[in-house]
Design a protein around this nucleic acid. Structure first.
Lengths: 233, 233
DNA sequence: TAGATTGTTAATCGATTAACAATC
DNA sequence: TAGATTGTTAATCGATTAACAATC
């Protein structure tokens, strides 16, 4: 792996969302999109999108794009006439973000939230492999019908190590969240997506944590609304 | 409402998370925290926290903090000896973010994900009032036992208007998400938290949308991991 | 072609960091 | 007190925006 230019975090996150969007648009049968259209769909200015996309060339070397070649503009394609070809743009972003080879994930906690995630279509698409799901309740494990392998929570460390699971998705009750996270870290997990309503503390700086917090989202929304109220009077 | 200084978005979002954290720490019986400790817990540098907190004074006028008074440092309190007094800091942030008066919310879609959210403790805390939940299935509505008023989805617009619901939480299947969002907007909702795996398009710029996307989080995490791999070799 | 759209450079804007005097 | 910690100013750093020539 060459150490090609590291992306600015805001760009990285926008590209990750764009990647998802492009997939959706492809499914709708479109062939090309303009930065203007993407702008409307993502709520991000069009020049910001173009700027973000300009990072795709760097580090890619000359294998894909030689000389003054464009990222792939102007192939007529769709009714739009011009714009970025969906397919190749998506591939480029995927390559830049390292979304080309599948990652392994596990799910811890099979309450309502866990089951909702267990049933998501994303696991059928092949980019992420959900190779294990855990719960404390033997009963629950038996009742669930799914193709994903289910384990008792006591097997957590063993299974994570055995399959070298990279990403852990936490959907346990708040009381159990911190301890579960610690166990995942000890077992060598590399990233955690935390859906439990807790602020996790992870010592190791090798482990990335993304907190998904309903309370946080509600507060952020309220604060923006409040600012709107101030301005509107 | 006076139009006091608008917060920089990153500051606003960090303060919103900090607000949640302070509540947790209070529940643990603590009385004070230093910016250093908060830094560890939030993964944000301590000077950034202090800087963020410095915005709390502005616009608050002289009612609360007169002259050279501090935000509230140094009251001995806990074993720590020094730091920010939890209680008053939390109140200040709440006031600045407009978290003092309760907001009304509704939940649309009572599948596994919806039910998980329905049962969250946050609705008991009084800051947010979940005044309605909707689903298409009469059967489902009858089976659920909860104190939250349940309605058939056809009553969406009416109920949202009647109770002037401000925030809509979307937990419907992906196919239904866009249409449901449109209906919420038409009924006068002011903000949407979208848990459905769809990129929503909302025309009205009076309506704020927060997308919570598992796929997005997975991609962001993968991309960061990929960058780590590049650096580590 | 003419109009639309990209890709990139340069200028602006805003956020983070460093540093330190003031305070407890 | 002495050590710790805040609060704020100034300097740096990085991201966004504007603008436009190049391209289709």
């Amino acid at each position: 792996m060459k150490k090609d230019s590291t992306l600015p975090p805001p760009t990285l996150e926008r590209l990750a969302r764009l990647y998802v969007l492009l997939g959706k648009l492809q499914n709708q049968g479109l062939q090309a999109v303009s930065s203007k259209r993407l702008s409307e769909l993502l709520g991000v200015p069009d020049h910001t999108i173009r700027k973000d996309l300009s990072f795709l060339r760097e580090g890619l070397g000359t294998e894909q794009l030689t000389g003054k070649e464009k990222t792939g503009v102007g192939k007529p394609g769709s009714g739009l006439g011009r714009g970025y070809p969906l397919e190749s743009l998506r591939v480029l972003i995927g390559a830049k973000l390292g979304l080309t080879h599948p990652r392994t994930a596990c799910l811890v906690g099979l309450g309502n939230l866990g089951v909702a995630i267990l049933n998501r279509r994303i696991w059928q698409e092949g980019v992420y492999r959900l190779v294990a799901a855990f719960d404390l309740s033997e009963n629950r494990l038996e009742l669930l019908s799914t193709k994903i392998p289910l384990y008792h929570a006591r097997e957590l460390e063993g299974v994570v190590r055995k399959y070298r699971i990279e990403i852990g998705i936490l959907t346990v009750p708040p009381e159990a969240a911190q301890e579960t996270a610690d166990r995942l870290v000890r077992a060598g997990i590399r990233g955690i997506i935390n859906f439990a309503p807790v602020v996790l503390t992870v010592k190791s700086n090798r482990v990335l944590v993304r907190n998904v917090s309903l309370a946080g989202e509600l507060n952020i929304l309220s604060a923006y609304l409040y600012q709107q109220e101030d301005v509107d009077g």
